[in-house]
């Protein structure tokens, strides 16, 4: 019972961490970043490079975030800026970008499976059972991340500008907010979060050129169900992640794999705006 509870909690946390970057980008830029999966992969490989070079495994996360930020800024400038008035095409372009990134990674690292060292290994004793320490740390990370993003959006100048752009981009521009800069920074931040998430989940998974893909669709569903808001995303991760764990445990792991997709499709049919609105 305790294991089940911890499974739900940690799975939801992982989903939250992975989906956060996608949500920031969707919220501010109204863009679904289909390269999100590839960004996760980039994060995973960054972690691999860092630990492979003998650095401390804790450095994997900031390193991945930095790589992601730079990558995001470049991608926004080169690929996305020409497509702002063609949102569906922008989705396709990010999908193409995902293909390109996966191939570049294959060039460099080959198709084989790689591993990254975990900052903490072993188990911790909690509720009379021993449970993976890293998974427990992820719960903490998710909570801190949620708080940090809320603080960023509500207590900083950037957050104010970003919220203005979310609500009414034309008006925001009229008020002198440089919406192009806001978009660029947002995409950089979103990509940084995605790469950091990739580094955070690698201790639990193996790294391969397509490791991000299975996460892409689930994150995408969670973000839409969340109604693009941080508390909504936390709720959606808990609900759908919980459902996934329950179905995987009691029914079948294969059906568990599609729980999020199916539930999200149903929820969005009933509440098209997602959980946090209307």
């Amino acid at each position: 019972m305790a294991t089940l509870f911890l499974d739900i909690l940690t799975t939801s946390s992982m989903l939250f961490i992975v989906a956060a970057g996608l949500m920031i980008i969707l919220g501010v830029m109204k863009l679904i970043n289909f390269a999100h999966g590839a960004f996760l992969t980039v994060g995973g490989y960054s972690a691999h490079v860092v630990t492979d070079a003998g650095f401390n495994a804790w450095l994997t996360i900031p390193a991945a975030a930095l790589v992601g930020f730079v990558l995001g800024i470049v991608v926004e400038r080169v690929i996305l800026r020409p497509l702002y008035d063609r949102p569906l095409d922008a989705i396709l372009a990010t999908w193409g970008l995902g293909i390109v990134i996966a191939q570049v990674i294959t060039f460099i690292f080959g198709r084989g499976v790689q591993f990254a060292e975990s900052p903490i290994s072993g188990t911790a004793d909690l509720f009379d059972i021993s449970y993976s320490s890293w998974r427990l740390i992820l719960v903490l990370v998710a909570v801190v991340l949620g708080a940090a993003l809320t603080a960023l959006l509500y207590f900083t100048r950037f957050g104010l500008n970003a919220r203005a752009v979310i609500m009414n981009e034309n008006l925001a521009r009229g008020l002198g907010i440089d919406s192009v800069k806001v978009r660029a920074l947002t995409f950089g931040l979103g990509a940084a979060l995605a790469c950091a998430a990739g580094a955070l989940i690698t201790p639990l998974l193996s790294i391969d050129p397509n490791m991000g893909l299975p996460w892409l669709v689930n994150s995408f569903m969670l973000v839409l169900v969340s109604g693009v808001a941080i508390p909504g995303l936390a709720l959606a991760s808990l609900l759908l992640g919980g459902a996934q764990v329950l179905v995987s445990t009691f029914v079948s792991p294969i059906i568990g794999g599609i729980t999020i997709v199916v539930l999200a499709a149903v929820i969005l049919r009933i509440k098209p705006q997602g959980l946090s609105r209307g």
């Binding site: 679904i32 569906l88 669709v217 995408f220 569903m221 839409l224 079948s252 294969i254 059906i255 794999g257 599609i258 997709v261 199916v262 999200a264 499709a265 969005l268 049919r269 098209p272």
Partner: peptide, 29 residues
Amino acid sequence: LSFYHGASPLYSSIMTLALPIVLVQIIFS
């Protein structure tokens, strides 16, 4: 499910995205 008045174009895309994923899992199982 996906085409009703007022449905966002994104929603129908989501449905078409969910369809092959669900189908493949059914084949797996």
